[in-house]
Amino acid sequence: MFESNKNNNHFNMTYALKTLVYLTNLWLKITIGIKKHKILLGTGVLIILLPLLVRFFIWQMVELEPEPITYANKTLEISQQKLNRNIELLNKKLIARRPKSYFLVINSSSNEFSLYKGCQLVKKDKCSTGSYILLKNGDQQQWMFKTPKGEFGIKGKTTAPVWKKPDWAFIEEGLPVPALNHYSRFEYGVLGDYALNLGQGYLIHGTLYQRFLGLPVTHGCIRLNDENLKLVNNALQIGSKVYIY
């Protein structure tokens, strides 16, 4: 198979090279015989045209694929069946990777979420994700408010969650940072009716600022409106997949 391929290349290459040598000679004859400005013009045209022409000739003349060998119909049929079987097997493996139950996909660029059940889209709507704000508190401390990307699992679910404000929540409001368990750290009702824990401090929760849904405004968490939060909370169980990109 490869022998015939090489011969074919060689045959066509000879023609291609002959044509190139002819064109080069022609160009030299023309350019040496005429005035300067025409030479410059000719050179300019050549710079643009020569690679294009050569490429054109190459693609016209060179045939790298070998001549098809004649096979018996039976051989082709067996090959086709084998190919179909392999493709089907790979398809099954690929489909098996998709969760069969509910899973959530978050687009942090367009601030949208899609809830799926297997291959079926259940709901697509606005959400809010990280604002990409880098909050700097002098040279010592800084926080980046972005939503992490990748595959996550629901690690826990809470009803009527209470937000324990971290240090940055006070710093960005210009307030002094209180002690670790100071009462001012605990806020009720700001996270909505449910919170789903993605780990590393990131949650899917509700919001009081529903007008900001669809915009990148959060500190890294994912905010949904009340109706969507309820739907997602009911659909996703502990261990359900959440894909963020």
């Binding site: 880098l134 700097k136 960005e172 409001e173 210009g174 307030l175 900001f212 915009l215």
Partner: peptide, 26 residues
């Protein structure tokens, strides 16, 4: 790739209110 917006921590609540950030698309 990452449209980061740098903000410096305000000194007090008055400065925080003055520098109130208006959310926008990326």
């Amino acid at each position: 790739k990452e449209p980061v917006v740098i903000r410096h921590a305000p000194k007090d609540t008055i400065e925080a209110a003055m520098n109130a950030w208006q959310p926008d698309t990326l």
